[in-house]
Amino acid sequence: MKFGILVFPGTWSDRDWHHVLTRVLGHEAVYLWHGDRDLHDCDALIVPGGFAHGDYLRAGAIARFSPIMESVAQFAESGGLVLGSCNGFQILCEAGLLPGALRRNAGMAFRCEWVHLRVERTDTPFTSACEVGQVLRIPISHGEGNFYLDDAELESLEARRGVVLRYCDATGQVTAAANPNGSRNNIAGIINTRGNVMALMPHPERCCETVLGGTDGLPLCHSLTHALAASAR
């Protein structure tokens, strides 16, 4: 099982993902430089967090035109699994692989803290190891995670069950107080219509070992590896 981890100038979570995928989970992982086009026969792609191209203009706006993104789009088009986190979410939205946009956080603060997420669906390759309604505790670290779609498109996203994770409190209640950034409908993670491209603002790769304060990133990683193992059979 081979993972490709995208690296743009300014990406900062690539090594954390590499550590989790190789040392914690025992899989193969390679870095994919933004200026290249070759995906090196990877089975799944990770678009990590950071500040690709300094987040200049808009987060993800310049990264989406990197040569590697054409290959990512083709990979997704052919059904390949793509998971984005934080800046990866912003890049995938800018690239049109996911709907919506991530605006500046409500209240302007850069939020770096643990949050709770309610799993809204488990019939995806990214959440199959979770339970519906399960509350995951995963850290966020972003200044622009305020998910936005206009009313009509938001309704359409909800109607097709495109929301996978919502910010909630420790008991799973989706409240305004539990929303760290002003995201519409407390949206923390979404999936595309086809069900093979997902992204979330939180950082599951930062909580896959007890020593780091939590392991709730593991169910998401395990879901992905189960899906790849199943498709390889």
Binding site: R103, R104, N105, A106, G107, M108, N146, Y148, D150, G182
Partner: peptide
């Protein structure tokens, strides 16, 4: 219009 502007509000 209609898109919340946290910078403008601040």
């Amino acid at each position: 219009s209609g898109v919340v502007d946290p910078q403008g509000d601040t």
